[in-house]
Amino acid sequence: MSEADSLSLEATRRRLSGKQADTVDKLTRAAVEVLAREGFAGMTIRLVAAAAGVGTATAYTYFSSKEHLVAEIFWRRLMAAGSPASEDPDPIARVVAELRAIAMLVADEQELSGAVTSALLGRDADVEHLRLRIGTEIRKRIITALGPDADVDIVESLELLYAGALVRAGMGYGSYSEIADRIEKSALLILR
């Protein structure tokens, strides 16, 4: 089993069998549908479970809260998207491509994008765990794009740029597409 396959079988709370992974997939797909219909404020684990055709208790076996579920959706999208960094010899072009791709993961789904911002600010332990995994993955991608001599201060500045942009988009200061453009401009200021 490849690393990517094992990641798809690992939920935040435990390792999953194939059948359990199918249940989690049903729940994450149903959550996107419920979000589109009800918004984050109206979304509940009970509604998601019903839409997925599973019991509420079963849904809570995998997800401790709606924030946890939405954070899991973002984590799965991040991992499924992979790294868009090209073989471009310019590390600046590679970093900009990485940050733009991450910012655009949920850009076309207004309710989901707002929910991701809210969810990632959650305090429950499962959300904190996912936030750490997401942050680690983004850091890894930035470092890979910058190259082997990546300056830690630049990496941290780019991480802050991304996190701040995510919050800004979630607050409604612009669409995710507009925020992605702003990330690009700001990253260029940091990198030049």
Rank of each mutant, 00 (worst) to 15 (best):
A101Y: 04
T136D: 14
D153C: 05
I154D: 04
K19Q: 10
T56H: 09
G53L: 12
A11I: 06
V152L: 01
A103V: 08
E10Y: 09
K19W: 03
M43F: 05
D22G: 03
P89T: 13
D88R: 00
V106C: 10
L69Y: 01
D25H: 03
Q110I: 15
D151Y: 02
R133F: 13
A85Q: 01
S175K: 14
A115P: 13
R13M: 11
V95M: 02
E3A: 15
R133C: 13
K26E: 01
R182Y: 14
D5G: 10
I142K: 00
A107C: 08
A80D: 05
I190K: 11
L189K: 14
I179F: 08
R141D: 00
L9K: 15
R141M: 01
A107H: 04
I138C: 10
Q110E: 14
Y62V: 11
S6G: 12
D181M: 12
I142P: 04
M1T: 09
A81H: 07
D126G: 11
I134S: 09
L112G: 06
A80S: 10
K26G: 11
G147I: 01
L191F: 06
S186W: 11
R37E: 15
Q20S: 09
V32C: 07
S83H: 04
W75A: 05
A115E: 05
H68I: 00
E10D: 14
L9F: 12
V70Q: 06
P84F: 04
D126W: 10
H68D: 01
A101F: 07
L188N: 02
K185F: 14
R76E: 00
L99F: 00
L130S: 03
Y173R: 13
G42K: 00
A187W: 05
I102V: 04
V32S: 11
A21Q: 06
G55R: 06
T58H: 14
K19P: 13
L99N: 05
A180V: 00
G53Y: 11
A30L: 09
A11T: 10
R139G: 14
S186C: 11
R131T: 11
P89I: 08
R182G: 15
I102R: 07
A187L: 01
A145Q: 03
R131Q: 07
A150T: 05
D181E: 15
E184P: 14
S113L: 09
V24G: 04
P84N: 04
F74R: 00
E178C: 10
E159T: 10
A187H: 00
M104C: 06
F40A: 04
L7A: 14
D124G: 08
A81V: 00
S186A: 10
V96F: 05
V48D: 12
I154C: 04
L161E: 01
G164H: 02
Q20E: 15
L132R: 14
I134W: 05
E128L: 06
R100W: 02
G18R: 10
R192Q: 12
S186N: 01
I143E: 12
G82E: 04
M171N: 13
H68Q: 05
G18S: 07
R13F: 09
Y176R: 15
E156D: 01
D5I: 13
R46Y: 07
G172C: 00
S6I: 15
I143T: 13
V34N: 01
I138Y: 03
H68P: 12
S83D: 00
